[in-house]
Design a protein around this nucleic acid. Structure first.
Length: 241
DNA sequence: ACATTGTTTACGCCGTTGTC
DNA sequence: GACAACGGCGTAAACAATGT
């Protein structure tokens, strides 16, 4: 996934009201200090634990859309140790889509008829990706973006997420109905070498994840290269049980 | 039109208080 | 005693910006 234009560097002042963040850059005439910030759109409704610390170096995309209230979109953040994090949750689905097309997750095999955001089942829930395996079996893929790191260990979720547990329940149902059901942790933090369910953030999710694995739901993690020019799927990472 | 999700505002209900 | 007014509490709706 290539950004339309090179991203603009800035520094974070604060993130607030879910969708907003204030940033500045010493070189910008109109917004050169934290006291006189530029407000940008924050496309992440989650907790963003460790991704939104004051003074973090961040990168913005320019929508070039005159209809938007806030022209710039916050895409990346850099930790104090230089690791890159993508905070735009929409990117995860795109990058996983590319990974599926490139067969970068060997365990899934080569998939055909990939459809995004398809509705499924009695609860009419949206599933991130749906496809057909080489064995002509239906496969459903739920993408979860991993941005929380403690050292090289990545975790999902970064806060209690009832929704995430509900998604796992849906996947378990899909397994029972004879389909393949998969979670792909899209690792959007370059410091992460392995991924596991975050028992310390959401014990219930960890429990349901273990149950899902038992019931046949498959778990994969995707490593990504993240630069201010694009986000590229690289290959598989270990998911710890 | 719907989704994202935590916060804020609005509102309905209940029990207490004050007044006639 | 009857009823309005009010505070507290819990729930529901609105809100923030954008993309699909």
């Amino acid at each position: 996934m290539l950004f339309d234009n090179p991203l603009h560097e800035a520094f974070l002042v604060r993130r607030y009201k879910r969708f907003l963040a204030d940033v500045y850059h010493p070189d910008w005439a109109d917004h050169n200090c934290p006291e006189n910030p530029l407000t940008v759109h924050c496309p992440n409704t989650g907790a963003m634990t460790g991704c939104a610390e004051p003074d973090m170096r961040v990168w913005l995309s320019d929508s070039n859309n005159p209809k938007r209230k806030y022209r710039y979109t916050w895409e990346l953040a850099q930790t104090s140790t230089g690791e890159m994090i993508c905070i735009n949750t929409q990117r995860a689905n795109q990058v996983v889509g590319e990974a599926l097309q490139q067969t970068l997750l060997p365990g899934l095999g080569s998939l055909s008829e990939l459809i995004a955001e398809q509705r499924y089942g009695y609860d009419n829930r949206r599933i991130d990706w749906q496809g057909i395996t080489t064995a002509q079996q239906k496969i459903f893929i739920e993408v979860k973006s991993v941005t929380l790191a403690e050292g090289a260990q990545g975790y999902f979720p970064d806060t209690v997420s009832q929704r995430a547990s509900e998604h796992l329940r849906s996947l378990i149902t899909m397994c029972h109905e004879g389909h393949r059901a998969v979670v792909v942790y899209c690792v959007l933090h370059t410091g992460v070498q392995q991924v596991s369910a975050a028992e310390h953030c959401d014990p219930k999710y960890a429990m349901v994840a273990a149950e899902a694995a038992q019931q046949g739901v498959e778990f994969y993690a995707l490593r990504c290269r993240i630069t201010n020019e694009g986000i590229y799927p690289v290959g598989e990472l270990l998911v710890q049980k």
